[in-house]
Amino acid sequence: WIARINAAVRAYGLNYSTFINGLKKAGIELDRKILADMAVRDPQAFEQVVNKVKEALQV
């Protein structure tokens, strides 16, 4: 799951650890299995999560 998430978030200019930190700051409580599945099956929803994380990180 970690490898999938890392590959997906790198397309948005983040790395895995920064993304996970941003999830916590944004108050998003999705587990890694769901995030990895979302990255593959629903990229639009995953992009929305990434955008919320970037807002929380102020990137």
Rank of each mutant, 00 (worst) to 15 (best):
A8L: 03
V59S: 14
L14H: 01
V49R: 02
L30W: 06
A26T: 14
T18A: 10
A36N: 02
K25Q: 11
A39I: 14
G22C: 04
V59T: 13
I34W: 14
A7V: 06
L30Q: 13
A7M: 10
K54S: 06
A26V: 07
R4L: 15
V59K: 13
K25H: 11
A7Q: 11
V40M: 09
L14D: 01
R10P: 01
N21S: 14
L14G: 01
D37A: 05
K25M: 11
E29R: 14
G13N: 08
I5G: 00
R10E: 10
Q58G: 10
E47W: 04
K52F: 11
V50L: 03
F19S: 00
L57F: 04
T18Y: 05
V49C: 07
A36H: 08
D37H: 13
K25P: 05
V53W: 01
R4P: 02
L35K: 01
V53P: 00
E29M: 12
S17Y: 15
R41C: 15
K33D: 04
L35M: 05
D42M: 11
N51V: 11
E55D: 11
L23Q: 02
K52M: 14
I2T: 01
R32W: 10
F46E: 00
V53D: 00
K25N: 06
L35N: 01
M38T: 04
Q48V: 08
V40D: 13
W1R: 15
I34G: 10
K24I: 08
G13R: 04
V40S: 13
S17R: 10
V50Y: 02
Q44D: 10
V50D: 01
N15S: 09
G27D: 07
Y12Q: 03
K25F: 09
D42P: 02
D42E: 11
A36M: 09
L14Y: 04
V59D: 11
V49D: 00
I34V: 08
V50S: 01
R41H: 12
R32I: 15
R10C: 11
Y16V: 04
A45E: 08
V40Y: 15
S17N: 10
R41E: 13
I20V: 09
I20M: 15
K24W: 08
W1Q: 15
R41L: 14
R4M: 15
L35H: 02
A11Q: 13
G22N: 03
R41T: 10
E55S: 13
D42W: 09
N6S: 14
K54V: 11
I2Q: 04
E47R: 11
A56E: 08
V50Q: 01
E29G: 11
I34Y: 14
I5M: 04
L57R: 05
I28L: 09
K25A: 12
E47Q: 10
W1M: 15
A8M: 03
L23S: 03
V50R: 01
L30C: 15
P43F: 11
R32G: 15
I28S: 05
K52Y: 07
L23V: 08
I20H: 04
Q58K: 11
A11C: 09
Y12L: 05
G13V: 01
L35G: 01
E55W: 07
Y12N: 02
A3P: 04
E29Y: 15
Q44G: 12
K24F: 09
A7C: 13
L35F: 06
F46D: 00
L57Q: 05
K52I: 15
K54R: 10
L57H: 05
V59E: 10
Q48C: 13
P43A: 08
I20G: 03
Q58I: 09
Q44V: 12
K33Q: 09
S17V: 07
L57Y: 07
I2P: 13
V50N: 00
D42T: 11
Q48A: 14
I34C: 15
E55T: 12
A56H: 07
R4C: 15
K33F: 09
E55L: 10
V40A: 13
Q48E: 12
N21V: 13
A26Y: 02
M38L: 11
K54C: 07
E29W: 07
F46G: 00
E47L: 12
Q48W: 10
R32M: 15
A56G: 07
A45H: 10
I34T: 12
L57K: 04
F19T: 00
L57M: 10
K33N: 04
